[in-house]
Design a protein around this nucleic acid. Structure first.
Length: 575
RNA sequence: GACUCAGUAGCUCAGCUGGUAGAGCAACAGACUCUUAAUCUGUGGGUCCAGGGUUCGAUCCCCUGCUGGGUCACCA
């Protein structure tokens, strides 16, 4: 990389790097650095009466306050920050004061990793700090970090451009308070989820991500290609059908926490890859699953937040069980006043018209009910609510309701006006399942590009017999959003999907040397704004000559300047 | 996909009616041995997102594109 591509501050840091090496200090040492303590426990365990405690800590320099022969810096480690006090004469007891005057004051920068050996004390202002006796360079940072300052918990100049924060999450995590907490809570969600499911006796499994038929949900899949098999494969949109095969195989309960991929729109609640937990348990039904789910979520919320409540925007949501259970038709009756039970498709169509909804003729009875619910009901359920007994048309993998005609034993859990989970008594009648798949095929032929494909192997497994089974899928990203009070999915994903960064097209050095430009001048010409040889064709030779000689002087490159005739000749050589 | 707002120094942001740019932090030089958004003095740093157009002249006005945010639509 040419120096000309770097900012002033980056150049200076690279020079500091060289100087450290020249002084015999390796800026990227290989040896383990043994740490005795963390910022957090140093502060928690300090006592003014106790004898001096020697500690070794390591972390990133986040700020420095230099006052001549003494300095303070803030050191950030994995647990937080601790202040370090450095006095010149305590760091360098001998004649040679280079470690303080040169290494610490000149060659180290904000962002560098250092190790500090010293003792813990309390400053006159009362802050528990480490008095440094030894400082070790652990890793040099070549790019300046954004500077975010905190006072009384208020952030000043916080690094908050969403584009930069998501593209460079590593920087976001380093400088912005609270970002890491969200992901620590996310990890706690996984831990609690696993412990509850494991204790219940269920088995964590992994099923294929690359599938020949992307089944188990209605969504457009990503397509990829396997060269050796010379066949297209899909990235899974759900884990459902494979997990049910394992129930056929005899597991009592199986669950998988994994990524699903859907080739659809992106917004504040949708990312192309997202995490789902699916659980299937034999001999259970959807009523049991509601009981299990509310206990599970209650426990997770408590473990993550220390309380059964969580705050999202202005809404305080309580995950304390039990949750309200409301059949979808009752929900519609409650919110719109229309009782749809026993109504025909045409009658429901009339209701839609009365409600001023936009509908079209391709929508069947189930779709119409779903639309009414989505339009008038879904957003109103802030507290966790099980909406139950969905129409069969929307639920091709669900067992028919034991008593209600045309409905299925299915529930969705609505929280904060959004679906958090989807569950049902699994359809285990292979003949019925085949019929439902065929119905999906008819929808597909009508142009519905999200209808399910027939998975013959899955039906074959049902033909061997699947016990009565209850299953559920929980959107983990949305759960984490609720438990951390976030309103966009990007805030709970380390690396949300973004459009690729734009890279300006730039010609190779050889392209420039072909027209007679010496290699050492190529970077200078590019710095002058001519990233491609073609763009140089229109350049004014006099101005270019001036520009590049100016850059030569400015950046002290010490190259022999070309003549105006040389520059004109380069431009003349371009075909 | 539609509409809308934004893109200026490493970061956060100003920038008037069109006359090639400012601040704070960061950086650099200097002072300072208990500071904490440290302080004080001085200095440097810019492809004003990109490409066209209008104009004597564009960071600014117009068009196109790129990236991001928001709202809506689609979708779970």
């Amino acid at each position: 990389m040419s120096l000309l591509e770097l900012s002033e501050q980056e150049i200076l840091r690279r020079e500091s790097l060289k100087e450290l090496r020249a002084m015999g200090i390796e800026p990227y040492p290989a040896a383990e650095y043994v740490v005795s303590d963390y910022s957090q426990n140093i502060k928690e365990e300090f006592s003014d009466d106790a004898p001096k405690k020697e500690v070794t800590v390591a972390g990133r320099i986040m700020s420095r306050r230099i006052m001549g022969k003494a300095s303070f810096m803030e050191l950030q480690d994995s647990k937080g920050r601790v202040q370090v006090y450095i006095s010149r004469d305590d760091l360098c007891p001998g004649e040679n004061k280079d470690m303080y005057n040169v290494v610490f004051k000149k060659l180290l920068d904000i962002g560098d990793f250092v190790g500090i050996k010293g003792y813990v004390f309390r400053t006159q202002m009362g802050e528990i700090s480490v008095h440094a006796e030894e400082i070790t360079v652990l890793s040099k940072s070549l790019r300046p970090l954004p500077i975010v300052k905190y006072k009384d918990g208020v952030a000043y100049d916080s690094f908050d451009d969403p584009e930069l924060r998501y593209r460079q999450r590593y920087v976001d995590l380093v400088v912005n308070d609270g970002v890491k907490d969200i992901f620590m809570k996310r990890s706690k969600v996984y831990k609690t989820l696993r412990s509850v499911l494991d204790e219940a006796g269920y088995t964590e499994v992994e099923t294929p991500t690359l599938q020949q038929i992307a089944g188990g949900a209605s969504a457009r899949p990503f397509i990829t290609h396997h060269n050796t098999l010379d066949t297209d494969l899909y990235l899974r949109i759900a884990t459902e059908l494979y997990l049910k095969r394992l129930i056929v195989g005899g597991f009592e309960g199986v669950y998988e926490i994994g990524k699903n991929f859907r080739n659809e729109g992106m917004d504040r609640t949708h990312n192309p890859e997202f995490t789902c937990m699916e659980l299937y348990v034999q001999y259970k039904d959807y009523n049991w699953m509601m009981d299990f789910t509310e206990k599970l979520l209650e426990k997770i919320c408590f473990e993550v937040n220390g309380s059964y409540e969580t705050k999202v925007g202005d809404n305080v949501i309580s995950f304390k069980a039990p949750y309200r259970r409301l059949p979808i038709l009752d929900a519609i009756k409650e919110k719109t006043g229309y009782d749809l039970s026993g109504k025909s498709e045409d009658e429901i169509r009339e209701v839609c018209k009365a409600l001023n909804m936009e509908i079209d003729d391709t929508m069947g009875k189930g779709k119409l009910i779903d639309e009414i619910f989505g339009e008038f009901c879904e957003g109103t359920f802030i507290q966790p609510t099980f909406i139950t007994d969905y129409p069969v048309e929307m639920s091709p993998l669900t067992k028919m309701h034991r008593s209600k005609e045309g409905l299925t034993e299915r529930f969705e859990l609505m929280v904060n006006g959004k679906e958090l989970a989807n569950a049902y008594s699994e359809l285990n009648d292979p003949i019925d399942q085949m019929e439902r798949f065929k119905e999906q095929l008819r929808l597909s032929e009508k142009g519905d590009d999200e209808a399910m494909f027939i998975d013959h192997d899955f039906v074959r497994s049902l033909e061997y017999g699947m016990p009565p089974t209850a299953g559920i899928g929980i959107g983990i990203d949305r759960l984490v959003m609720l438990l951390t009070g976030q309103t966009t999915i990007q805030e709970v994903l380390f690396f949300p999907q973004m459009k690729p960064e734009k890279v300006q097209p730039k010609d190779a050095v050889a392209k420039y040397t072909e027209i007679g430009i010496p290699e050492e001048w190529v970077a200078v010409i590019q710095k002058a704004g001519f990233l491609t040889v073609a763009s140089l064709k229109e350049a004014n030779p006099n101005k270019l000559h001036q520009d590049i000689c100016g850059l030569n002087k400015k950046f002290k490159l010490e190259l022999a300047n070309p003549s105006k005739e040389d520059v004109a000749a380069w431009i003349g050589n371009i075909k």
